[in-house]
Design a protein around this nucleic acid. Structure first.
Length: 484
DNA sequence: AAAAAAC
């Protein structure tokens, strides 16, 4: 069997690899590393979880070992679709370049530019970037790309999904045509093929077998929830989710939702009910995203409630359970989501909550996976549904006052309460969870459709001053929070 | 239909 020592890597890199505990390369590593070391272009067709990151990081380190960076003139760039993925690549450099004098900078959005700029000024060998921030810095003349010798595009098909292809093309054109290109994609959509034909020179095509549909070692279950409308169904799903989770021994698990709002609500709902859960999605503060992911990796956090930001690519080893709160819009994403479990031959379980609205997407999933999940038969007590699907208060400390129900409800701009609910976990995960979920909250429809108007209600009707929000001020807005 | 990504 091939070992890392057979691939032509230097003693320094091999030492760093050994310290991570690996000695056997994955298929993509075994094939891509020797090719990349020679300086040829690589077209790697590989899923996430196949060891792609090391497949390009290791040869890059070797090829950059001779030579030095100049200010604002990086010698290599790695492009990744999401900030978390970029961060992961930088972690790989940290591990594998341990015995080399290489500098790298992580250029992603959502964090301060100043540190990135000062790094660039000092000179970095490798930029690890999401396309938007890289181009932003380029336009500000903080970085030049004409010294780039190696360019890596990771998860190109996902870049395509996210509309990054024009950016990628632009970045390609900013680098010298003499560069070496290492290009990775899970699939070869026509647009991807076009890009590779335009920018790669006689690439060596390396394809590692793709787990076509769903892994054998993932046991899939489906649970159908009742509910006549979307709001009911969401609530029923939260109840069912808790019931299912309660029957399981969970070391760690991911709950996927289609929408960011649902990610927040489900995360809070779980927390309120005593589960160790936290949300992650693209609207959350970047530092919090990293922190949450980190504590999930370390095992401090049991349940990660996530949008599809976490469906692909993220290196989260050994997730025992995946819960799909919704059926994803693309059947492909279902495969990616449940592929977070059952890795490296371990067994995993995937649970799917299905409501009427999901049926259409579910059909597509079934068509793709050709495997019908087992119907989950557990007793779920939905009696809580009727009780607080209305606006009954469950704030015990609230003083009785003129019937809430009769009061005209004056909300708010379209963004007010809901946007706050979305962004508020970024402020503080724990202090705020008490008051949101499965408790009265501003109705979605109303706040969308009604206009801002009434600040006129007599303020002595209120326990607190809350002009402009009507009576139903979300409690977290009244609380003083440390925004940092 | 939704998520992701630049200020």
């Amino acid at each position: 069997m091939t070992k890392f020592t057979d691939l032509g890597l230097s003693p320094e890199v091999l030492k760093a690899i050994a310290e991570t505990g690996y000695d056997t390369p994955t298929a993509i590593q075994e094939q891509a590393i020797p090719v990349a070391l020679t300086g040829l272009d690589v077209l790697g067709i590989a899923q996430t979880g196949t060891g792609k990151t090391a497949a390009f990081t290791l040869p890059m380190i070797e090829r950059l070992a001779a030579g030095r960076s100049r200010a604002r003139m990086p010698r290599a760039i790695v492009l990744a679709p999401t900030r978390e993925l970029a961060d992961q690549v930088s972690e790989a450099f940290e591990k594998y370049a341990k015995y080399h004098k290489l500098n790298w900078a992580l250029l992603i959005g959502g964090v301060s530019m100043a540190d990135q700029v000062s790094k660039l000024d000092k000179g970095v060998d490798v930029l690890i970037a999401t396309p938007g921030r890289l181009l932003d810095l380029f336009e500000r003349s903080k970085v030049m790309l004409n010294g780039v010798q190696i360019m890596v595009v990771d998860e190109a098909d996902r870049m395509l999904d996210m509309g990054f292809i024009p950016d990628i093309e632009r970045i390609f054109k900013l680098t010298p045509p003499t560069r070496q290109t290492l290009f990775f994609s899970a699939t070869m959509a026509p647009e991807i093929t076009r890009i590779t034909q335009a920018f790669l020179k006689n690439p060596v095509r390396i394809e590692v077998s793709r787990p076509a549909t769903t892994a054998e070692n993932i046991r899939q279950f489906v649970y159908r929830v009742p509910g006549s409308n979307a709001l009911n169904a969401a609530k029923a799903k939260r109840i069912a989710l808790r019931a299912i989770i309660s029957t399981l021994e969970i070391k760690n698990g991911i709950v996927f939702c289609n929408r960011k709002t649902d990610v927040d609500i489900v995360a809070k709902s779980l927390s309120v009910h005593g589960f160790n859960a936290a949300p992650i999605h693209g609207d959350l503060d970047q530092a919090l995203r990293m922190k949450t992911l980190d504590s999930f990796r370390k095992g401090d956090l049991t349940l990660l409630v996530a949008s599809d930001v976490a469906a692909r690519g993220l290196d989260i080893p050994d997730v025992g359970h995946v819960f799909n709160f919704d059926v994803p819009h693309h059947a492909d994403d279902y495969v990616h989501r449940i592929g977070r479990t059952g890795r490296a031959g371990r067994s995993g379980e995937a649970y799917l909550l299905l409501s009427g609205a999901d049926e259409k997407n579910y059909d597509k999933v079934l068509k793709l996976t050709k495997k019908e999940p087992e119907t989950l038969s557990i007793e779920v007590d939905f009696s809580a549904m009727s009780e607080d699907s209305d606006r009954k208060s469950s704030r015990p400390d609230r003083k009785p006052r003129r019937s809430d129900r009769d009061k005209p409800i004056k909300a708010v701009t379209k963004t007010e309460p809901e946007a706050e609910i979305q962004s508020e976990p970024a402020v503080n995960e724990n202090a705020v969870i008490e008051n949101i979920v499965d408790k009265p909250r501003p109705s979605r429809r109303r706040s969308r459709t009604e206009k801002v108007s009434e600040t006129k209600e007599k303020s002595n009707d209120y326990e607190t001053t809350a002009e402009g929000f009507g009576w139903h001020v979300p409690a977290f807005l009244l609380r003083s929070v440390d925004l940092k």
